[in-house]
């Protein structure tokens, strides 16, 4: 006995056409990576793996993108909840502003940050010891501005889909609003929060444009993997640049698979059905 519906020729044709797009996209991505692998020689890979500077850039990439994601989630969870659950004057404007960094060219974020830290407020912050320009914390700041919106958007959408009545019931069972938020809303939205974190992290680790402008590419200090790729390309060492890009792809793939496995132990949603 099968729990799946009977599928005739037309249903199979429909499924096949859907999968055609999935397979096409995967083939395109794999083809690109395969081309990179084909171009890179073993010597470049060895050089990348042995280089202290590149190892440092890889560690810095991982560290900053993870810190950025953590800070972004501190903002994204309450912001997503506020935008989803409350009606307040200017909500549509606030919702739009949240999306702005997504449409901003990333380079502009770097320029804007540079300009901001030359304003009175920025200079005052610097005078208080909060220096960002050409500093490691500047990497996190730039990554945060570009990538947090992805997390906020994903989490807001999840809260939209979480049944609000469960929170109402929790209030009648003795919860304060904050307890209902933590014990019910956040718990129900946890998969969406993980998805938001993944999006944020993925955007942050691949960021390059604003970093070059705002923190530069100082070896062993502010250089992250995407900037290393740029630097190697600019001096004509394409093989090495591609080897670094492959390293970045491996790190990101392993990290994303690990998070998915940890966060979604039951990976198949109830709505899923056998594909054939």
């Amino acid at each position: 006995m099968s729990v799946h519906p009977v599928t005739g020729f037309r249903s199979r044709l429909f499924t096949a056409s859907i999968f055609l797009f999935l397979v096409l996209f995967l083939l395109l991505v794999v083809a690109l990576i395969a081309a990179d692998i084909g171009y890179v020689d073993l010597a470049s890979v060895k050089e990348v793996l042995r280089s202290r500077e590149i190892r440092s850039a890889a560690v810095l990439s991982l560290w900053t993108s993870t810190v950025t994601t953590a800070i972004a989630m501190v903002f994204a969870v309450p912001m997503g909840y506020a935008l989803s659950r409350y009606r307040f004057p200017g909500r549509i404007l606030a919702d739009t502003i949240v999306d702005l960094p997504i449409v901003f060219p990333p380079l502009v974020v770097g320029l804007s940050l540079l300009v901001f830290f030359r304003t009175r407020v920025g200079l005052w912050l610097e005078s208080m010891g909060l220096e960002f320009i050409y500093q490691r914390r500047g990497i996190v700041l730039a990554q945060f501005f570009v990538s947090a919106s992805y997390g906020i958007r994903a989490i807001k959408t999840t809260f939209d889909e979480v049944d609000r009545r469960q929170e109402d019931v929790a209030l009648t069972l003795g919860c304060t609003r904050a307890q209902a938020f933590w014990r019910v809303a956040v718990r129900n939205a946890r998969q969406g929060i993980v998805a938001g974190a993944i999006l944020t992290w993925a955007r942050a680790i691949g960021l390059f444009g604003p970093l070059i402008v705002f923190v530069g590419a100082v070896r062993m200090k502010t250089e992250v993997l995407p900037t290393t790729v740029y630097l190697e390309t600019s001096i004509g060492r394409i093989e090495v640049a591609l080897a670094i890009a492959l390293l970045l792809i491996v790190i990101a793939t392993v990290a994303l698979i690990l998070v998915r496995l940890l966060a979604y132990p039951r990976a198949t949603p109830r709505s899923a059905r056998r594909f054939w």
């Binding site: 049944d163 469960q166 019931v169």
Partner: peptide, 20 residues
């Protein structure tokens, strides 16, 4: 008074069981 201070038990129409 907040809902928790009213001494009520509430069963909504769709029951709203905690799915988690």
């Amino acid at each position: 008074a907040e809902p928790r201070d009213r001494g009520i038990g509430y069963v909504p129409q769709d029951y709203a069981l905690f799915t988690a």
